[in-house]
Design a protein around this nucleic acid. Structure first.
Length: 999
RNA sequence: GCUGAAGUGGUGGAAUUGGUAGACACGUUGGACUUAAAAUCCAAUGUCCUUUGGGACGUACGGGUUCAAGUCCCGUCUUCAGUACCA
């Protein structure tokens, strides 16, 4: 009987779904385990083979854990709000809900074909009102909370108001805005409602503020930094401008320290932790206040420095051009120059400014600050190397200790004062942290650490500075001028935001005529006819009824993509709960994700925001743990092979030392007179001055052989070619093609003719080269899992994706390799069949057979626990090859073998399991137990090496002692041949491992 | 620049605590079966030298530690990813 994967896979997929085989249930004695994939955004393009990689890995682990006796929660859902559906809606008028629905259906169909063991009864969709009701609810909780530094957690805003009413804000320690003025209880009571609300918003964990944003007029929305490439929008290439807008922000900065500390207790990849650590950017130092020299004003410049110990080295100060003080302190004579400079820098985009690090620019304001210790006059400059968005937007410049200050000082001929003992600073600043401080009054002679401590102490005593920890992490902008997102549960009363009570949620996204901004530039929700809040009926009503007494305008922005994904993992625990976002009971049972698998591109986005919300909800007593995922694994990207078409003949040799502007290819190919060469061969030929016949030195000019380091580049005439189109030719298989005329390194090159036709052989005009890059529709290098399932089956796809290489690593996809795992499955199938029928014998297994089984159990179990899925696939292959050679058909061996394989290839495992007489699904079987007794050996084939080099092997009994082994080996004739009569100096014997003879 | 990861055959990749480098596959070559193809099976396959037996070299490069190094240490180079004037 044939291995008919189509029939088998369809059969078991419907069996699992009908029997709800993978439904998780809290009512059990089994220990819990929660495995989660980052849920997908259902794009119109559907899945490509890169997407399921992580899902396959997590599915294997899930199935393994079930075999181990765990109650496993393994759900899946969709991150279904987002820009692509909205863009599509703008172009076609199709409602994004419909597009989303269609895309989800496609995704589900594709996912089902691969045989995942998801508990679909728990599916969530972020765009579903039943779901985003709770996203809105969490937003309200954040609005109604502040961060109390004294208790080190978020608390209800009412506790803050109570303190204000009783004693004002002098005693309050909070993670809040920095510029809050001190007021008494009396003052608080005297404030108007508006003023009170303005003050409270400086404490709330989500708040409205005027934020400078990247505004893209053509798209009518704010863009995140990573959505902008070279100053234009990534999508469409439209210009982007800086613009101030009133936006909701999330006070994630309040959690900086805890987000940092939390990393220590979670098992996440180090690179990812490092990325978050850098993103949070904690730096310890001091804030120092410098008085501005002035007759009548009291202006001060506050700076942050990590090196307060270098305070006596300050010879000037630099402010960011945007610093608010600039206009106030600039003197009359310098006014013109300063204004011109500010105008010039404003014209340059932030990108340009960042890209151009080398150009030093700045201008003197004419004003001076006074050194807080010496009272010396310090010139105040402005310069764009100082960023307005970091620290205070001003620095105390210590040119002898900071290279940027040093360069600036040299450029403008400002004094450089050396405060380091015995260090030469004529060429560069001294950034060595072991240098002793000198020339610095009371700090002289001290090492950095002590000097820093003392400097801070003195500053605090004198009252112009204090120790401070600064974080790079900024509050996150939470408003988007888009349609397809969660609406805010907010209306505006007298200009002040009001939360709609939780009882009235969800606030459902209104229908609009068009999905673009309104004529007056309001977000798309401005197009809705019914988008006003009636406080009498507590319902959304028509805009016409707005009377500013009982009916009020609602918020027009929507929430960003990361809102829904910041807590979805908790919803899976209790997905249909109408009264709570998750019940206490469910969350106390499942607690957190035990294993989370997804891409590393979310390091500083989703994974940081989700940790923030988790900590917040934990603080408020809604969750039992403050980290949402114990262990996280980043699966590597599967890359596609793109075809590029190059014009041949147009090549150039480039001296790589001096050139970087020309087009650049990773694997340039050179073709001449019917031969294809890679650049290494050309280099070798030319540099050795031994050009082979086919290459004529004069073709390239003599200069080539003189340049030591050069590249040969071919100008591309077309960027991406559609591989499938090239593939469609029956004559050629890209992977298998070989032109005997060519250098064998380029067997993969194929050629296409002038009209685009494929030419078997070398064509004078074009050559197709290949490069490995990200899989994407626009690059014509996408491989669809459906076609793989159709042709080889889901089990083959699953095995192959794992077989490609280590899970975490990026790896190129090559469909041709799948035949290996496919024929493995056929071999496996054959192992359970005698002639045409499935048959297992009840005979006792031989020692040899048991050994094969148990070494396989051991290896596979270790591999799964180490997430080394690629190596267990080869272990299966070895086992099946060996058992086939023995013609093993014993149940004692073949039955446990199926359980080992079932996490990887569940369909074939179910089918054979069933055929050899098991009624229940293999998912309920327990994992075979490894018995070391079966692996006990009586002898070992020793490698015998001489001076560390293996020369021959010798089988010896493991009972032999060291001395006996040494004697036997030395007596061996081959040993004598190797020694050639010499006496060995030393013989190393490691019993059970190796023998090494030093001679 | 900084941070992190990684450099092993024609290709993807194996190699426990240092102990037979290249497992398992792909591809390629030769063979069997077949009218033919597909499928399947068998054999060979790191490079170089050698009539055979066999030998020399080999894990980016240069050193070092060790009886023994892909693995440990020092230095250099390259690639990829993230981040970027962070005071």
């Amino acid at each position: 009987m044939e291995y008919n994967f189509r029939e088998i896979e369809a059969k078991w997929q419907s069996y699992w779904s009908q029997n709800q085989t993978f439904k998780a249930n809290e009512k059990t004695d089994k220990p819990k385990y929660y495995v989660l994939d980052m849920f997908p955004y259902p794009s119109g393009a559907g899945l490509h083979v890169g997407h399921p990689l992580g899902y396959i890995a997590s599915d294997i682990y899930t199935r393994y854990k079930r075999h181990q006796g765990f109650n496993v929660l393994h759900p899946q859902g969709y991150d279904s709000f987002g820009l692509p559906a909205e863009q599509y809606a703008i172009q076609t008028g199709q409602h994004p809900a419909i597009t989303t629905q269609t895309n989800i259906a496609t995704y589900r169909k594709q996912l089902d074909k691969i045989g995942f063991s998801f508990d679909w009864s728990r599916e969530v969709r972020t765009s579903n009102p039943d779901y985003y009701k709770w996203t809105q609810w969490i937003f309200i909780q954040l609005f109604n909370s502040w961060y109390n530094s004294a208790s080190n957690k978020a608390e209800d805003i009412t506790t803050l108001v109570a303190i204000f009413e009783k004693s004002g804000n002098e005693q309050v320690r909070a993670e809040a805005e920095e510029d809050i003025e001190v007021f008494s209880a009396e003052a608080w009571h005297a404030f108007s409602k508006e003023v009170q609300e303005t003050i409270l918003s400086k404490y709330r964990l989500t708040y409205l503020s005027d934020t400078e944003v990247n505004w893209c007029p053509a798209l009518g929305t704010v863009l995140a930094n990573d959505e902008i490439v070279n100053g234009v929008s990534e999508r469409g290439g439209h210009p982007v401008v800086r613009k101030k807008m009133t936006q909701w922000s999330m006070r994630i900065s309040a959690y900086s320290q805890r987000l940092l500390e939390g990393l220590e207790k979670i098992d996440w990849p180090q690179p990812l932790k490092d990325a978050q650590t850098n993103w949070i950017g904690r730096s310890q130092g001091a804030s120092v206040v410098f008085k501005v020299e002035s007759e009548n004003s009291q202006e001060v410049v506050e700076v942050f420095t990590t090196r307060p110990d270098t305070i006596f080295g300050v010879t000037f100060m630099t402010l960011a051009p945007e610093h608010e003080l600039v206009s106030k302190i600039t003197t009359g004579t310098q006014k013109e120059a300063v204004e011109a400079y500010i105008e010039a820098t404003a014209k340059r985009s932030e990108r340009e400014r960042m890209a151009d690090v080398k150009t030093i620019s700045g201008v003197f304001t004419g004003a001076y600050a006074l050194h807080p210790f010496t009272g010396e006059k310090i010139p105040i400059w402005i310069g764009d190397y100082v960023l307005a968005s970091y620290g205070t937007g001003a620095v105390m410049a210590v040119p002898c200790g900071d290279q940027r200050d040093y360069d600036f000082a040299k450029h403008f001929q400002i004094d450089i004062k050396n405060i380091f003992e015995g260090v030469d600073i004529s060429e560069a600043a001294c950034e060595d942290k072991t240098a002793k401080i000198a020339n610095s009054d009371f700090l002289s002679g001290l090492p950095v650490k002590k000097a820093t401590k003392l400097a801070i102490y003195k500053m605090e005593q004198a009252g112009f500075g204090k120790g401070k920890i600064n974080y790079r992490l900024r509050d996150a902008v939470f408003s988007r001028q888009r349609y397809w997102g969660e609406p805010f549960p907010v209306y505006y009363k007298d200009g002040l935001p009001q939360m709609i009570a939780a009882a009235h949620l969800p606030i459902v996204l209104p229908e609009v005529e068009k999905y673009l901004p309104t004529g007056s530039g309001e977000p798309p929700l401005g197009n809705a006819d019914a988008w006003a809040w009636c406080t009498e009926t507590n319902t959304v009503v028509s805009n016409e009824k707005i009377n500013n007494e009982t009916v009020w305008p609602m918020e027009l922005n929507t929430m960003p993509g990361w809102a829904g994904s910041s807590w979805y993992f908790n919803r899976y625990m209790d997905p249909t709960n109408q009264g709570e976002f998750v019940s206490k009971e469910a969350v106390n049972y499942w607690k957190e994700i035990d294993l989370y698998i997804g891409g590393s591109e979310h390091a500083t986005g989703h994974l940081l925001y989700a940790r923030f919300w988790q900590k917040f909800l934990f603080d408020k007593g809604h969750l039992p743990v403050d980290e949402f995922a114990k262990k996280l694994i980043n699966q590597g990207m599967i890359l596609g092979t793109s075809a590029f078409v190059y014009r041949i003949g147009e090549f150039i040799a480039v001296d790589t030392q001096n050139n970087s502007n020309l087009w650049r290819l990773k694997n340039p190919i050179f073709v001449s007179k019917g031969y294809a060469w890679d650049q290494d061969s050309i280099k070798k030929a030319l540099l050795k001055s031994e050009p082979k016949n086919e290459i004529q030195k004069e073709d390239y000019g003599d200069f080539l052989s003189e340049i030591k380091d050069f590249e040969i580049r071919i100008k591309p005439v077309q960027i991406h070619a559609d591989v499938s189109l090239i593939n469609s030719s029956d004559e050629l298989d890209i992977d298998g093609f070989r032109n005997h005329e060519m250098n064998k390194d380029y067997r993969n090159a194929i050629f296409i003719g002038e009209k685009g036709e494929i030419v078997n052989g070398v064509n004078d005009t074009y050559i197709v080269g290949r490069e490995v890059e990200k899989m994407s529709k626009s690059k014509y290098n996408v491989v669809n899992p459906d076609t793989i399932c159709e042709e080889y089956g889901a089990d083959s796809l699953r095995l192959f994706e794992m077989f490609l290489g280590p899970l975490e690593q990026a790896k190129p996809w090559k469909t041709s390799g799948i035949s290996g795992v496919y024929s493995f499955l056929k071999k496996l199938w054959k192992l359970y069949h005698t002639d045409a029928t499935c048959f297992v014998s009840e005979e006792k297994a031989s020692k040899e057979e048991l050994k094969i089984l148990h070494k396989t159990i051991k290896k596979v179990q270790e591999d799964i626990e180490n997430f080394s899925f690629n190596t267990s696939v080869s272990t299966f292959m070895i086992a099946v090859n060996e058992l086939s050679a023995l013609q093993c058909n014993k149940r004692e061996i073949l039955e446990p073998l199926l359980v080992l394989i079932s996490p990887y290839a569940p369909h074939i495992a179910e089918e054979l399991w069933n055929k050899i007489g098991n009624g229940e699904s293999i998912a309920t079987a327990s994992f075979p137990i490894f018995d070391a007794n079966h692996l006990v050996e009586s002898s070992k084939v020793y490698p015998i090496s001489f001076n560390g080099k293996m020369r021959f092997t010798l089988e010896l009994s493991l009972d032999l002692s060291k001395e006996e082994i040494e004697k036997t080996v030395l007596a061996h004739e081959k040993t004598q041949t190797q020694l050639e009569g010499r006496t060995p100096k030393k013989v190393i014997v490691v019993p059970g491992k190796i023998v090494n003879i030093v001679g």
